[in-house]
Amino acid sequence: MVDPIVMDMGIVALTGALATIAGAAEDLESDVGSQSNPNSQVQLAAQMNFPHRIFNKAISGEPPAYGLWCASGATVASVLMAKEMSIFFAIAIGSFVAAIILGLFSVTAHMGRTASQKRFKQPAYMDMVIGHVPSIMAHGYIAIFCIVAFSYIMDHFMGHPFPLPLLAFLWGVAAGAIGSSTGDVHYGAEREFQNQPFGCGLNAAFSGNIVRKGEAGLRNGIDNVWACAKLGGPLTGLALGMTVFLDNWRTTVFEGMNTIIAGLIIVMILILANRMVEVKARKAYGPYKDEDGGEVA
């Protein structure tokens, strides 16, 4: 007979693992299309006389967008489950439908934004739409499947009182917010401005002057996701995975007031750790200096 706590911890670990994959895929999906924060520079590039071949996926911010994909996927999955379909197939089909909706929103965002930049002579390259949208949908599918799956586990095995679509919606918003705040830095600051010295900050004169030429040929969203898969994606996965794992861990191991106290202690440790990393980074890299040693930024 397996101790129930072992079983519970296994479920907690599974939700954490699913969330880690979801976070990584979510961030990489947003990098293929340049959604969220880095999008403003992609939008600005053409207006500053730097036409480009980078996908302009301005659907909305990542949190509302992922709220919609996950709510759609979970809605379709709930209906199929109510019709007695197996859980695995129901979630898979729901996520597929949500990925198609994501693809359709991507097309309208890219084509709409490009057409609205007529005066800046930004062409609409159709091979980009055909090449990027399947990659966006594929990354999105993984993220949506994992989020809906761990929401289902929370709903059915951990006794969460919310229905599946609502829970998936809330976790979708959380995943989008984490992807937007964690992963975007790697793409926006590091990849888009790869030609600037590390840590120099973004001078207003460089606005829109993003890297438009790649290792071979013109740079596109697929090149960007290749670079971001190294750090930005995994870090986002770790952040979402830790959020889901630690939150479920404290509610599984503790009860009543102790759960809240454990939560507060975790938050305190994270704040301290963040501060230490920030201080260490500032000491190591410091303000950007020019060749004479004077502070520039």
Partner: peptide, 8 residues
Amino acid sequence: NACLGPDE
């Protein structure tokens, strides 16, 4: 948001 730009 999708069609934002001066030529919207």
